[in-house]
């Protein structure tokens, strides 16, 4: 059976660490990094990348549009 696998890429320097993407993700993929970016913001990253389905919810609510979403089908 085909399974959907996703991933996100965060434009780290433009992320403001607002966390709005975190509750938007039903798979609990995203957290804020311990490190900060050039502006001093903790940025979003995939804490549980294997759970990402590429549903795009995080990218859609991201106020700064810093999330690019990828999705592909893999044979189980």
């Amino acid at each position: 059976m085909a399974k959907v696998k996703g991933a996100i890429v965060v434009d780290i320097e433009k992320c403001k660490g607002c966390s709005v993407c975190i509750p938007a993700c039903n798979q609990n993929v995203i957290l804020l990094a311990k490190e900060v970016n050039g502006k001093g913001y903790q940025y979003a990253y995939m804490e549980n990348p294997e759970a990402c389905t590429g549903c795009v919810n995080c990218a859609i609510v991201c106020p700064d549009g810093v999330i690019t979403v990828y999705r592909t089908k893999v044979e189980a």
Partner: peptide, 30 residues
């Protein structure tokens, strides 16, 4: 997974390169 052909969502090209001046989490950007 992270390959151009797998992109399903990205910021529209109609945005300029300028980072948004709004506060973190502000709805204006969306």
């Amino acid at each position: 997974i992270i390959k151009p052909e797998n992109i399903v969502y990205q910021k529209t090209k109609l945005f300029t390169e300028k980072p948004l001046s709004y506060c973190p989490g502000c709805g204006h950007g969306t």
